Simulated assay, not measured.
Amino acid sequence: MTYAILFGSIGTLAETSGIQLAAYNQAFSEAGLSWTWTKSEYQNMLKDAGGLKRIETYAKARNTTVDARAIHQRKSEIFQEHLSLKQIEARAGVKDTIKHARSEGLKLGLVTTTSLENIESVLDAIGIGLSNFDVFTTSSMVKHPKPAGDAYVKALQDLNLQPAQAIAIEDNPDGAKAARTAGLRCVGLIGEMHDVADFPELVAQQVELDLSDILKPLPVT
């Protein structure tokens, strides 16, 4: 039986939260806003997915009218610029897992609801080619972002697999919820700005990816 490992976000490949936070604050400054998100504020915001939604919610709470879409677009541009200049590494075990999965004939997916530009920027920065993945999703490919399960449903359909034939790896609570909504088992590779207590039930929690541990929750045939 064919099995698949589905990486659920760019954050499962590299720790990018600090760069994202810096990009938000720079975008706010460029837009003439006095907003400065602290690390603790951002950690709390990350419990819910969606950068554009975070900006809109923050502005509404302060009775401030902003062009949230333009700010978010600029944030993404700054994020990509930072990645092109800043050395970041793939998370521990990621490259080995991809290599071993390939050698074992497993399918690989990158199931995100971010932009293709963000995906390519992260992959370029850590030296992993998009061609390593048999399927990938972006924000433009699904109607409902995470925590809806649409992205995972699409990935499984494209791979012609059932949920029992795949396992998701997620670094954030909404991503894990999306995987579970789509019927997948989910391994938590918890991001540095997340708390495992905020996650739904996981089949495992990994500090460093290990292929044999990831595959344990899959049924043996």
Rank of each mutant, 00 (worst) to 15 (best):
Q157M: 05
I190M: 07
E41N: 08
S103R: 15
G188P: 11
A14M: 03
D195K: 14
W37Q: 01
A92F: 02
E89I: 00
V153C: 10
I19W: 05
S17T: 06
L159G: 06
E41L: 04
V111H: 06
A182P: 01
L110Q: 06
G183I: 11
A176E: 09
F28C: 02
A197T: 12
G32V: 02
A164N: 15
T16V: 12
A178H: 10
L211A: 01
L108D: 13
V122M: 09
N25L: 10
T114G: 15
Q206D: 03
L6W: 09
I71D: 04
L189F: 15
D158A: 12
D174L: 07
P145M: 11
A22W: 00
S29R: 10
D198I: 04
Q165F: 02
S140P: 04
N25E: 10
A90T: 07
T2V: 08
K60G: 00
M1A: 07
L159D: 09
V135A: 08
G109S: 10
H72S: 11
T64Q: 15
D210T: 04
L202G: 03
K39N: 12
I10H: 00
G105M: 08
I190F: 03
G18M: 01
Y58V: 00
W35G: 08
S139H: 11
Q20H: 15
Q20S: 12
S212W: 00
L116E: 15
A61M: 11
S121I: 08
Q165M: 12
G51E: 09
K75L: 03
G51P: 13
L189M: 09
G8E: 04
F7R: 11
I5W: 03
I167R: 03
